[in-house]
């Protein structure tokens, strides 16, 4: 298991903090002195999963490196909502260069720090799914292959949200986006082969790859902390629901992330040097409908005649994940 569940306490394992937990068992987010790497006043939409995920990850990284952190950021929502002139929400040294070059910029920063002998300063690169799985993929793969000393964090909200919800290679099948409208014989996004960047990252045999969601803070912080404890190329893929792009209620952000995991649609695991070392088991398995129904991007599946075949195909994706990663308790890894 990524971390030891706190037995015999009603919420220790799942809530952000808890007055009864030993301080070391609480999350960074529970700390009154947490960094707030991403400060208030940012212009993210109500209930933004990416804003949440970024603060979770950056604050955890800050703790792990004693606040000696530099970040490179891809173009996208996170960049736009955090740094419109004349205000920035970042509390850390941060640079935005371009959409597709974040991994390379981070490589450059890491190289500069190395040459200057500042080994204590650590580098994080971050971007959305578009900046990671599509346009920034070349630079990402290069950074992986060279094993540059960079932790790359992808905040995956499954489409190009900043430009108005267009499809990315992380958009799930059947999802409505502005470029995959729910019309025609195969409404919504096509059932392609998908581009599973965590798996591709693993194929680079880099020291560390992990997936996480904003619904499980302990696990997320554990993974960021673990990644920060290593050197070389590391990749964390964080699932961050987008209320606007998904057509979900702003208060359902964490619930959706939870359901993505509990359905099996998003596998939460970690891998070292290309080998899966642990998976987060599903706690209460639910059918994919429970997840899909909360999102208007899938509403066309639940019309007068529900698209049972499409839903079954999505369920099959979840089932395949469950088999592949051994996500159910009894199946084991």
């Amino acid at each position: 298991m990524p971390f030891q569940p706190v037995k015999f306490y009603q919420t220790g394992t799942f809530t952000v903090g808890n007055r009864l937990l030993a301080p070391e068992e609480r999350t960074v987010q529970a700390n009154m002195q947490r960094t707030n790497g991403l400060n208030s006043g940012h212009r993210a939409c109500q209930g933004c999963g990416e804003a949440l995920g970024a603060r979770y990850a950056i604050d955890a990284a800050m703790r792990a490196c004693n606040n000696q952190l530099v970040a490179a950021n891809a173009t996208g929502c996170l960049e736009v909502f955090s740094t419109p002139y004349p205000e920035t929400s970042w509390q850390i040294p941060w640079i935005h260069s371009l959409f597709g070059n974040t991994a390379a910029v981070a490589t450059g920063i890491a190289a500069a720090l190395k040459v200057k002998g500042r080994r204590e300063v650590r580098v994080v690169a971050q971007g959305g799914d578009g900046g990671t799985t599509d346009i920034g993929f070349g630079c990402l793969s290069g950074m992986f292959e060279r094993n540059d000393d960079v932790l790359y964090i992808c905040y995956d909200n499954e489409a190009y949200m900043n430009t108005g919800v267009q499809r990315s290679s992380a958009t799930p099948p059947a999802a409505r986006t502005a470029t995959t409208m729910p019309v025609g014989v195969e409404p919504g996004n096509v059932f392609g082969q998908g581009k599973n960047v965590p798996q591709i990252a693993m194929a680079h045999n880099i020291p560390y790859v992990a997936t996480a969601t904003v619904a499980d803070l302990h696990d997320l912080e554990y993974k960021v902390t673990k990644a920060m404890g290593m050197h070389g190329a590391r990749y964390i893929h964080i699932f961050v629901p987008c209320p606007l792009g998904w057509g979900a209620a702003s208060n359902d952000t964490i619930k959706l992330a939870r359901l993505a995991r509990e359905t099996g649609l998003f596998a939460v695991y970690e891998a070292e040097h290309g080998e899966v070392t642990s998976v987060s088991k599903i706690r209460k398995r639910v059918p994919v409908e429970e997840y899909l129904k909360l999102q208007k991007r899938f509403v066309h599946l639940f019309g007068k005649t529900p698209a049972t075949e499409t839903i079954a195909r999505i369920q099959a994706m979840a089932d395949r994940n469950i088999r592949k990663f051994g996500l159910l308790e009894e199946e084991g890894v």
Partner: peptide, 15 residues
């Protein structure tokens, strides 16, 4: 593209 991007990162970090 990466060459210039790495240079950007390095320069911004003072190298």
């Amino acid at each position: 593209f990466a060459a210039m991007s790495v240079a950007i990162g390095a320069s911004a970090a003072g190298a």
